[in-house]
Nucleic acid binder design. Structure first.
Lengths: 236, 236
DNA sequence: CGCATTAGTAAGTTCGGTTCATTATTGAGC
DNA sequence: GCTCAATAATGAACCGAACTTACTAATGCG
């Protein structure tokens, strides 16, 4: 009965502060639950503002989510290059890229799921900066493969994009259950397994020059042994 | 002004007929567009019934979609075994499984996208018969790998589930753009590429017994040639 | 032929995202 | 300290789509 008639004091933040506030809160909520229903009302409730306010900052709910994901993803990829610079060798570098990706999946399942299931599934994903970042990123992996080919370590005919598809598709598939909160996985072990298969799959054959040399030698041996041992029985 | 007061003649079908009708119509719509909004109203409109009627047959929109997808998927997988029975050899059998999967993606992009993006992303997918069928199906692929290991053709230490993840994850990744109506791909070529990488990746090393025998022979040759040719110059 | 059964309807409710006309707060210039 | 333009925020709506329910009409079985 006692209606609080006093007009609730309006909290008035600067545009950028409020914006950051909303995004921070949205990020927390997105990490807390995989259910994206009613998120706008939820954010408003937690921040003590009204739903309409959020729409002064983001044109649409989807827009808000994308912005949050983009910011997260950019931070995630920030110091890739620096770390990669410290690693040499095709196999080790490949493994690093794979391991890094697996680790992100492991440490931020909710965000990964958001990107993979929610954003990437929808049309308009290609306009996302996430898509661009991702392209960049996989291309760095392919650059490693290209280097390997140039040096003769890898076969020249490997279908580059398929290597990419198998690596990243394999990673996603491998993490599928984990992203849904079921089961566990070890980034290190998974990286080992993937790189083991892929590297063998794309490596140049074992030095066949050595092999063929041996074959020539064997031929010669047969001639010689025939010449020199034809009158003897095989000794053993 | 001229309201048609005549009560529109009710079309009354048997339960099973109406059910089939709805599912058929839903299937058509799901194939026509990737937009799943308003689908219930759409179906009702096309069939000349009212939305409520649909809810006498399916508890929820999602339920309807799942049923449609399940039916399609079951038909899709029906004669796998028979076809596979006609193929021998680890590599050929693997390639068939991969090619088959790619072909489904190629021929039914809308349905595949529905399953991959819509159904599989959501919780409760595991209760779906699609999930079960899929498990069965990938296990058949792993059975081929196991056979290969048993025969010594493949390495004993290959991590089975990772092979599965790389194959099916790779396929999905490869078809990603195509499923969104962008670009093309060739199931046959893609199958070749995948199987080429995977098979090399998991095959047992080239027969090293032959190699080491050659090495022994080479050693012996060196002894012999030293004995018999030490006083001669190399001829050519 | 009458009545139980069941297909189908009409008119809602709910819920979440989105809009907009209005109100309150702020700070710059006087 | 006062005024006013700029702008943060509100609240009450709208909208579309999924779902519900109390009721109506066709059917077929006895």
């Amino acid at each position: 009965m006692n209606l609080e008639t006093q007009p609730r004091r309006r909290e008035r933040l600067s545009r950028s502060e409020r914006m950051a506030d909303i995004m921070r809160c949205a990020g927390r909520i997105l990490r807390e639950s995989e259910d994206r229903e009613g998120i706008v009302a939820d954010i408003a409730g937690r921040l003590g503002i009204v739903e309409g306010t959020i729409y002064r900052y983001f044109a649409t709910k989807r827009d808000l989510i994308i912005r949050v994901a983009e910011e997260w993803y950019e931070g995630m990829l920030a110091d890739y290059d620096r770390e990669l610079a410290g690693i040499t060798g095709t196999k080790a570098r490949l493994r690093f890229m794979i391991w890094r990706h697996l680790t992100v999946m492991h440490d931020e399942p909710a965000m990964c799921r958001l990107v993979l299931d929610e954003l990437r599934a929808d049309a308009g994903y290609r306009k996302t900066s996430i898509y661009q970042l991702n392209r960049h990123y996989t291309q760095r992996t392919l650059a490693i493969v290209k280097d390997g080919i140039a040096s003769g370590e890898l076969r020249a005919e490997v279908p580059l994009t398929m290597v990419r598809d198998m690596i990243y598709g394999g990673i996603e598939h491998h993490c599928w259950a984990y992203l849904r909160g079921e089961g566990r996985f070890s980034p290190a072990r998974a990286a080992d397994d993937i790189v083991a298969i892929v590297y063998r799959g794309i490596a140049a054959p074992e030095d066949t020059s050595a092999l063929s040399r041996l074959e020539q030698v064997a031929d010669r041996l047969e001639q010689i042994t025939q010449t020199h041992t034809s009158n003897r029985e095989p000794s053993c």
